[in-house]
Amino acid sequence: MERSEILKQFEPANENMLNILHALQNNNSQNYLSEEDIKIAANYLNTTYSHIYGVVTYYTMFSLKPRGKYIIRVCNSPVCNMENSTKVIEEIKRFLSIEVGETTDDKRFTLELSECLGRCGKAPGMMINEDVIGNLDNVDFKSIFENYN
């Protein structure tokens, strides 16, 4: 979608800043906020792009770097950590051959860590884009990732 079409869905008011940035990021085929995205948002919200850059770097869901089609967020908070999220992270790293923060060569997956995702009843847990997957201590990652093309 054209950026201007996205912006039209929101009033140019400060309380829509994060919603707008989410929408622009979701619309970006590389799942990130480009300088162009930020400049357009700044213009729309009548603020400076320095201000928006500061906002973007504060919130962990936003990225200034291109990312994969699917963002894997592994919860590494105390409960999941106790339930061995570290092992989960290592396995995913090995399986996808990337480090945390990196994107697979085929641009499909970006691996990130996340704070508590509220899935503590099914720890360890993760999200792949909007999907939640829990009880990861004994799963076959191949079969999970196969579903994401």
Binding site: N16, L21, H22, M61
Partner: peptide, 20 residues
């Protein structure tokens, strides 16, 4: 957009106003 602190009520206000 990914900040534990924004659950603190005064920080939430700042965030809702489009700030860090």
């Amino acid at each position: 957009a990914g900040s534990y602190l924004c659950g603190e009520e005064l920080t939430l206000l700042e965030s809702l106003e489009g700030k860090r």
